[in-house]
């Protein structure tokens, strides 16, 4: 909605004093957002490390590099110091986002569980709060995913609900035959848009 207000603001004026600079460029960026990053086979090959392409809401896409793996926790680092920790593809902690989260008990490997429940204790920032969240994981179906090449993926759906306030949703994970999550759509914070991550491993 911010965008539409801004556009209407640009077209307001009065009898006494009006400047009207750079409207086309600004209006374009307001409507379409920043440009999208396109990962192709050649750009994939140019990057020497595993990386992830991340979209948060409509704020455009960015790349994060895999910095380390400790106890199945993958640490992805962005160019401006943002850090996202994932475990089995699920985001368990973030640092440097506008709205950060920290799952205090990032425990089960839900990818092999078929159908399972889990309860997470989550620390939210901005504003700070502690919540517990119940998640139900279920293998859904198989799907062909077209990234830099076609991949047969199994789709797992996580339905979550929060006890202290009304926040429910669905997270989706696509994982390949080796059990690695190759893509996910996740809601990690009520104030943050959906995060879409595509993982490119090396």
């Amino acid at each position: 909605m911010t965008k539409y207000f801004c556009i209407s603001l640009l077209f307001l004026s009065s009898c006494s004093l009006v400047e009207f600079k750079d409207v086309p460029a600004v209006a374009r960026s307001l409507i379409y957002g920043p440009p999208e990053i396109d990962v192709t086979m050649s750009s994939y090959e140019k990057v020497p490390y595993s990386f992830a392409k991340i979209n948060i809401g409509r704020s455009g896409s960015g790349l994060m590099i895999l910095l380390s793996i400790n106890d199945d926790v993958y640490e992805w680092v962005g160019s401006n110091g943002e850090v996202i920790f994932t475990k089995n593809g699920k985001i368990i902690r973030t640092i440097g986002l506008e709205y950060d989260v920290n799952i205090l008990n990032p425990k089960i490997n839900f990818l092999n569980c078929g159908e399972c429940y889990s309860q997470y204790f989550i620390e939210l920032s901005n504003p700070k709060a502690l919540i517990n969240q119940n998640s139900f994981f279920k293998n859904s179906h198989k799907e062909k995913l077209e990234l830099i090449k076609k991949i047969d993926a199994t789709v797992m759906i996580e339905n979550f609900s929060t006890s202290k306030f009304k926040w429910t949703g669905e997270n989706i994970y696509w994982f390949d035959d080796s059990g690695q999550v190759i893509k996910s759509n996740q809601q990690i914070h009520p104030s943050l848009g959906e995060i879409e991550i595509t993982f490119y491993y090396k």
């Binding site: 911010t2 965008k3 307001l12 009065s14 004093l17 750079d22 960026s29 957002g33 455009g60």
Partner: peptide
């Protein structure tokens, strides 16, 4: 509101 730096302002 922009995705690039600019010194321009909208004056009303």
């Amino acid at each position: 509101f922009s995705t690039t730096y600019t010194k321009d302002v909208f004056t009303w």
